[in-house]
C-alpha cells in the first residue's frame, strides 16, 4: 500500500487529494476531492497524467502577422508536452480564424485537437 498526496490542478481551488494504491499499483481509494472532475484528475494523475497545452501560433491577417492563442481541447499525456510544442511551432495559419476552429486534428492523440482561442477576421 502506498499513498500519494496530490494537489488537484483542475480548477484554481487546488483541492488536496489523497490516492491510495495497493501493492499492484492499482487504485484502492481516492479521498479529498470535491468534484467528479477532481476524482478523475486524481485517478489519471497516478496512472497516466495529462495536461492541457496552451501556446500561440502565428496568424497572417490583413494587418500583418499576429499571434493566435491556441490550446488542446483535451488533456494530452504530460510526457508529450515537448513533442507537442514541436508541432505547435511548425503550425501557422491565415485569417479568418475563429475560436474553436480545429487547427491540427488528432493532435498527439486520436480525437484530440489543437484549437484556436480567438477570432481574427
Amino acid at each position: 500500500m502506498t499513498t500519494k498526496e496530490l494537489t488537484c490542478v483542475v480548477c484554481p481551488a487546488g483541492c488536496r487529494i489523497t490516492v491510495t494504491l495497493n501493492d499492484a499499483s492499482a487504485i484502492e481509494s481516492i479521498e479529498g476531492y470535491t468534484c467528479l472532475r477532481g476524482k478523475t484528475y486524481a485517478a489519471n494523475e497516478v496512472t497516466h497524467p495529462v495536461r492541457t497545452l496552451t501556446s500561440t501560433v502565428p496568424v497572417m491577417t490583413a494587418e500583418g502577422k499576429k499571434m493566435l492563442p491556441v490550446r488542446t481541447n483535451a488533456g494530452i499525456p504530460r510526457e508529450s508536452l515537448f513533442e507537442a510544442m514541436k508541432i505547435v511551432r511548425a503550425t501557422a495559419v491565415k485569417a479568418p480564424v475563429h475560436t474553436g476552429d480545429i487547427l491540427v486534428a488528432d493532435f498527439i492523440e486520436p480525437g484530440t485537437n489543437l484549437i484556436a482561442c480567438k477570432d481574427f477576421e
Binding site: P12, T52, T54, R71, T99, C117, K118
Partner: peptide
C-alpha cells in the same frame, strides 16, 4: 493570458484568457 483555467465558475468549463474575454 493564453493559459487555461478561466471560467469554471462562470461557464462551467475551463477556458483560456482570450476565450473568456471573447
Amino acid at each position: 493570458c493564453i493559459h487555461a483555467g478561466f471560467g469554471l465558475h462562470r461557464f462551467g468549463e475551463e477556458l483560456t484568457g482570450p476565450e473568456y474575454s471573447g
